[in-house]
C-alpha cells in the first residue's frame, strides 16, 4: 500500500507544480514573482500597481479558469475511461465506447449549423451525448439479456457512434464552406480556447463532483465487477444497479467534457492504462491516480498547445499524436495482461 500512496502524493505534487508553472505560460509574459504578488494581493488585500491590475485580469479571468478546466476535463475523461474499462472488463475501452463523443460532436454540428450561441452549442452537444447512451442502453435492453448484455452494449455503441458520425458528416456537407464548415471542423478537433472561461470551469466542477464522487465511492465494487457479472453477483453485488450508476456517472463526465472542449481522444484510454502500470489494477488507488494523472497529462498537453504556436494548436490533435504511439508502446510492454 505504501508505494501506491507515494504514487498518489507524487502525482498530486506534480499537478500542483505544473499548474503553477502553467500560470506563467502564454503570450502575456508573467514572472512567478509577479504571480505571487498578484495572488497575494487577491488573498490578503493590499495595493496593486497598474501593471499588476492587468496581470490580475489575465490571471484570474483567462488563465486560471482555463487551467482548472483543463485539469478537470483530463480527470473526468480519465475517470470515465477507467470506470468503463472495469465495467467492460477490458483495458482497451475508452470513454466514448457507448457513443458519447460522436453524438456530442453531431449535436454541436447541428447547433453550429443553425447558429446557436456557444452556450447553445454546449447544451446541444451534451444532450446528444446523453441521448446516444440512452439509445445504446435501450438497444441493449431490447436485444441482449443475461450473459451477452455487455457485448450487445459494446456493439450497439459502435452502431450508434457510426450513425452519429454520419450525421455529423451530413451537417458538414450542408454547412456553408466559408464560415460554418471551418467552425464545425475546429469544434470537432477539440480545444480549451473557447470553453467559456470561468463559466466553463464552474460547470465542469459541478459535473466532476456529481459524477466523480459516486465513482470514487464505488471504486471497490469496480474491482469486483472485473470478475464478471456472475461472480460479482455471487459476491453480493447488485450488478444491474451498479452498472447503471457507473454508466450514468461516466457518461455525465464524458458528455460534459466533450460539450465544453470538443472531442479529445486517447486521454481516457491511455491514462488509466499508464496508471495501472504504476499502481496495479486495484481501483482503490487506480481511480484517484487516473484522475490526477489525467489532469496532469491534459494540462501539459494544453500548455504545449498554447506555447508552441501563436494561434494555438487544437488540443485533440496533440493528444492523438502522443496517444497513438504511446498506446502501441504499452501494447508491446504489457501484452501478457490481455492474454
Amino acid at each position: 500500500m505504501k508505494k501506491e500512496r507515494l504514487v498518489l502524493i507524487g502525482l498530486a505534487a506534480a499537478l500542483l507544480i505544473t499548474a503553477f508553472v502553467s500560470l506563467t505560460i502564454g503570450r502575456y509574459a508573467m514572472s512567478p514573482g509577479q504571480i505571487t504578488a498578484v495572488v497575494g494581493a487577491r488573498l490578503f488585500g493590499g495595493e496593486m500597481r497598474p501593471a499588476d491590475t492587468e496581470a490580475d485580469l489575465v490571471l484570474f479571468i483567462i488563465r486560471l479558469p482555463r487551467i482548472l478546466l483543463t485539469i478537470m476535463v483530463g480527470a473526468a475523461l480519465s475517470a470515465s475511461g477507467a470506470a468503463f474499462q472495469g465495467l467492460f472488463k477490458n483495458p482497451m475501452v475508452s470513454p466514448d465506447i457507448l457513443g458519447v463523443s460522436s453524438a456530442a460532436g453531431a449535436g454541436a454540428a447541428v447547433a453550429l449549423l443553425i447558429g446557436l450561441s456557444s452556450v447553445g452549442v454546449n447544451f446541444a452537444a451534451f444532450c446528444f451525448g446523453v441521448l446516444a447512451v440512452l439509445l445504446v442502453l435501450t438497444l441493449a435492453q431490447i436485444i441482449g439479456r443475461g450473459d451477452g448484455a455487455l457485448l450487445i452494449m459494446v456493439l450497439s455503441g459502435i452502431v450508434v457512434s457510426s450513425l452519429f458520425r454520419a450525421f455529423t458528416s451530413l451537417m458538414k456537407y450542408l454547412a456553408d464552406a466559408d464560415n460554418k464548415l471551418p467552425e464545425i471542423t475546429f469544434w470537432l478537433m477539440g480545444s480549451f480556447a473557447k470553453s467559456g472561461g470561468a463559466r466553463g470551469a464552474v460547470i465542469m466542477l459541478s459535473v466532476l463532483v456529481l459524477g466523480g464522487t459516486p465513482l470514487l465511492a464505488l471504486r471497490w465494487r469496480l474491482n469486483v465487477l472485473g470478475f464478471g457479472e456472475e461472480e460479482a453477483q455471487a459476491m453480493g453485488v447488485n450488478v444491474k444497479q451498479l452498472r447503471l450508476v457507473i454508466i450514468a456517472c461516466a457518461t455525465l463526465l464524458t458528455a460534459a467534457s466533450v460539450c465544453l472542449c470538443g472531442s479529445i481522444e486517447w486521454v481516457g484510454l491511455i491514462m488509466p492504462h499508464i496508471m495501472r502500470l504504476l499502481t496495479g489494477p486495484d481501483y482503490r488507488v487506480l481511480l484517484p491516480a487516473a484522475m490526477l494523472g489525467g489532469g496532469l497529462f491534459m494540462l501539459i498537453v494544453d500548455n504545449f498547445c498554447r506555447a508552441v504556436i501563436p494561434g494555438e494548436l487544437p488540443v485533440g490533435i496533440v493528444t492523438s499524436i502522443i496517444g497513438a504511439p504511446l498506446f502501441i508502446y504499452m501494447l508491446c510492454k504489457r501484452r501478457r495482461e490481455w492474454a
Binding site: 464505488l218 469486483v224 472485473g226 453480493g236 496495479g280
Partner: peptide, 27 residues
C-alpha cells in the same frame, strides 16, 4: 480462470468481503 486485470491474490480474496460492506465502503 484468468480475469482481465492482474490483481494480487490478497486483493482477490479480499473481494469476498464485499457482501459485508456498505455500498460505498472500502474493506
Amino acid at each position: 480462470h484468468a480475469p482481465p486485470f492482474s490483481f494480487r491474490v490478497f486483493d482477490v480474496v479480499l473481494m469476498g468481503r464485499t457482501a459485508h460492506l456498505e455500498i460505498f465502503a472500502q474493506p
